[in-house]
Design a protein around this nucleic acid. Sequence first.
DNA 1: ATAGTTATTGCAACTCATTGCAATAACAGC
DNA 2: GCTGTTATTGCAATGAGTTGCAATAACTAT
Lengths: 140, 140
Amino acid sequence: MTQTSDMVAELKERGFRLTPQRMMIVSAIESSDHHISADEIYSQITESYPVVNISTVYRTLELLKRLNLVTETDLGEGRVRYHPFAKGHHHHLVCQTCGSMTDLDESLLTSLENSLLKEYSFRADLRHLAILGRCRKCAD
Amino acid sequence: MTQTSDMVAELKERGFRLTPQRMMIVSAIESSDHHISADEIYSQITESYPVVNISTVYRTLELLKRLNLVTETDLGEGRVRYHPFAKGHHHHLVCQTCGSMTDLDESLLTSLENSLLKEYSFRADLRHLAILGRCRKCAD
DNA sequence: ATAGTTATTGCAACTCATTGCAATAACAGC
DNA sequence: GCTGTTATTGCAATGAGTTGCAATAACTAT
């Protein structure tokens, strides 16, 4: 049996065309064990099959983002990283001095989300947030 | 009497050189009544005195940021905006549908900062944060 | 005022990301 | 299977921001 990717299934169901480029991009994101960057997706694909343009990578990421299939996180590196939404969403504490990253449970932000909703009627999009600062070791 | 800019005074005191370029960049930031972008600073200066390079603008902003004289905010526009730290720091709720911006009192995030410090010994840098999401009008 | 030290600038090249437009190729209907 | 429609891609140009390096010019000490 062929295990079809969740994302590919979702794309098909929503009426988007299943191009080879999209399949490969989705596959790269799903098979990555970490938060992957656009450039990493691009080089991984072009290694084996050099017919994908970098702008297609970005456009596909944009689409997957819009469909809530991937989340985008700015870890303060000067580029942005992507992660399948289905693989779980958490937050990151990123130390700007030593670069260490700690995962942060989602629940820590739910109370903030609730106050924003209650007091401002604002639905904050805080999935996969990176909070920059200083870790214990690097504190002044 | 000549009112000297706080930022210029601080730069001098810390031993940084007071070049005409820096003075003009600082002046543009201080006299702006809103959050100003690098490009706006650049065009404002070159209108009257065309001898400033855009990379100098970015390097000066980097310096002012490091000295905590300005804060940088990503309002989700595809470019970043700057604001004098001394003029007060607040947060923003930015609606990704209609683009409206609501100022948010600083205090709403202090409880989050406190939990991060307590539970993770992490000193979060949450000055001038922009929280993206959906405002009341644009809610589904 | 002048000269020396070195922080700062300008320039040009580069990275990451976005966009308009013409060419291509998925998919639907026959 | 073939054909038409139009979503999607590739290309090339553009925007925002960064960086290495040589030239310049603040500031310090004389």
